[in-house]
Simulated assay, not measured.
Amino acid sequence: MHTNEMVILTRDALLLPQGRTKVRIVEPHYLKMVAEVLKERYPLVYGMHRVHGKLPCYPYVTQCDVIDFDQQKDGALELVLEGRQKVKIMSAVQRKDKVWIAITRRYDNWQKEAITAQYEILSAALEHFFQANPELSKLYSQIHLDDATWVSQRWLEVLPLYNNEKLRLVCQPNCHRTLDYVLKLIQSHVNKQENSSLASLDVKKMR
């Protein structure tokens, strides 16, 4: 099976196909790595940081493109990355300059799917989340709230889950498991709010 060499950027966050994130680069070895990427010597993959193990990140990562960059006054480099293709790291070695080089193979992206009525609440909640987080929403020129895959992947990126839990969902063959998972979380949150409101009403009646 065809493999590729790619350089690894790790962060304690998830980036999936069609997702965007802003990253601040200050480490000298990462600055050198980005220069190699911009010169098209290596493709770039973005992976969730992992403390233990032979790899610096979890093995399922996302090849991404640098769609914008800006040199900061303090010397840091600010990148805007866009996820393109899921890949799996087969092996990796760290160079003397601390840059990790990975041997990767392509891992199928989830296919686009129309969102059904059952999951429309996820689109509405994501739209509200973007409105409440303008720094994130302005990274996107378009949002695809009618695409179940796009919606579910954006939820996986922003939800405060353990990295291994996110990985378990990412490795599914499609977005269906993630849709169900996020729907249960939102429904549980709504139920808690309703129960809290009812309890408040009961207290008022007792007074």
Rank of each mutant, 00 (worst) to 15 (best):
M1E: 13
M1Y: 08
M1D: 10
H2N: 13
H2E: 15
T3P: 06
E5T: 11
E5V: 01
L9C: 04
L9N: 05
D12R: 09
L15P: 01
P17E: 13
Q18P: 00
G19A: 11
K22R: 09
V23L: 02
R24N: 02
V26I: 11
E27H: 01
L31M: 14
E36R: 13
V37C: 04
L38R: 13
Y42G: 01
P43N: 14
L44A: 07
V45Y: 00
V45M: 00
Y46S: 05
M48L: 07
R50T: 01
V51R: 15
V51H: 11
H52V: 10
K54H: 12
L55N: 13
L55R: 12
P56N: 04
C57I: 07
V61D: 01
Q63M: 15
Q63D: 08
V66A: 00
V66Q: 00
V66E: 00
I67D: 06
D68R: 03
F69L: 02
F69P: 01
Q71M: 13
Q72V: 05
Q72K: 10
Q72D: 07
Q72W: 06
D74S: 09
E78L: 14
L79C: 10
L81H: 09
G83P: 11
G83H: 10
R84I: 14
Q85I: 05
K88M: 13
I89R: 04
I89W: 01
S91N: 14
A92G: 07
A92V: 08
V93P: 04
V93A: 12
Q94C: 10
Q94P: 03
R95N: 15
R95K: 15
K98S: 13
K98E: 11
V99T: 12
W100K: 02
Y107S: 05
Y107L: 14
Y107T: 08
Y107H: 15
D108E: 11
N109W: 06
A114T: 15
I115Q: 12
Q118S: 09
E120H: 09
I121A: 11
S123C: 07
S123W: 09
A124N: 02
A125Q: 03
E127P: 00
F129S: 03
F129T: 05
Q131H: 05
P134E: 04
L136F: 13
S137N: 12
K138G: 00
Y140K: 05
S141G: 03
S141F: 02
S141R: 08
Q142E: 14
Q142P: 00
H144W: 13
D146G: 04
D147C: 12
T149E: 02
W150F: 04
Q153D: 12
R154E: 08
L161M: 15
N163H: 05
N163A: 05
N163T: 02
N163W: 03
E165C: 09
P173Y: 15
C175K: 02
Y181A: 11
L183C: 06
K184C: 04
Q187H: 01
S188H: 13
H189D: 15
V190Q: 10
Q193T: 12
Q193W: 09
S200C: 01
S200D: 02
L201G: 00
V203F: 04
V203S: 02
V203W: 01
